[in-house]
Amino acid sequence: MKKTLDEFNIGEAGKIVSVSGEGRLRRRLFDMGVTPGAEVLLRKKAPLGDPLEVTIRGYELTLRKTEAACVTMEVEK
């Protein structure tokens, strides 16, 4: 099943299918290791529901829902 990263629930994991978004933003996501094929686990949401904290490539990354919406995921069963 495919959905974007911002639609994930806490504890849900998956593989990145594609990354969209405006040039510089997407570049930044790539540089931080958010590339197709990478495994992502949604660790938690901030107390106000946004931003998100994910584990990717062995480290913790935080990004906003608007940025997470650029990341299409294949949900892990």
Partner: peptide
């Protein structure tokens, strides 16, 4: 400004 940040241990 975007907020994409590493959270250090």
């Amino acid at each position: 400004p975007p907020f994409i940040m590493e959270l250090p241990a």
